[in-house]
């Protein structure tokens, strides 16, 4: 079994991870934070990687899970950012920058899972079986989430014109 060095894995997978995170979160800070989180998790898990899957697939599945958790965590603390902005403890512009999703705005209407399913199935054009495997959920659940995500995006695009 081949032992992987962290920098070797980083070099091989950085572009793929960056592509995923730059469509999943919107501000530069979030993208860089999430990117770092993914590779910190990779570094932590690398000694346990047994090479059962291709290293790229393994890193991608870590990136998917870390991204979903990142958004969930961000939503959990959103009230705190809003409150700090309301009391002007941090600049209202900073709150705006942290919460405004800019060019990818309609995606922000989706839950963390729906957003990831839509990106994997529609943008990365993965088969639903593969998406289900990455998301660790049944194909039926993926289908229903994808359907709901499409409906939400269509409505958003219709009402607000998308990007």
């Amino acid at each position: 079994m081949k032992q992987y060095e962290f920098n070797e894995v980083y070099e091989a997978c950085k572009d793929m991870v960056w592509k995923l995170v730059s469509r999943y979160v919107f501000s530069r800070e979030d993208r860089e934070d999430l990117f770092q989180e993914v590779f910190l998790n990779v570094h932590r898990a690398l000694p346990r990687f047994r090479g059962e899957a291709k290293v790229g697939t393994w890193v991608f599945s870590i990136a998917v899970n870390v991204s979903i958790n990142y958004i969930k965590k961000q939503k959990r603390y959103r009230w705190l950012t809003d409150m700090l902005g309301a009391f002007r403890i941090i600049e209202p512009e900073a709150v705006e920058a942290a919460t405004d999703v800019g060019e990818l705005k309609p995606l922000a209407k989706l839950s963390a899972r729906q957003r990831m399913i839509l990106l994997l199935a529609e943008v990365e054009e993965m088969k639903l079986g593969k998406v289900a495997q990455l998301m660790k959920m049944p194909v039926g659940t993926v289908k229903s989430n994808l359907h709901r995500a499409r409906e939400i995006i269509k409505k958003e695009v219709r009402e607000n014109g998308g990007i």
Partner: peptide, 17 residues
């Protein structure tokens, strides 16, 4: 359609790494 146009714009999102 609008949705497909949105998806193709999404595919075109590029950020410098």
């Amino acid at each position: 359609g609008e949705y497909e146009a949105y998806l193709s714009r999404l595919k075109g999102v590029k950020a410098e790494l």
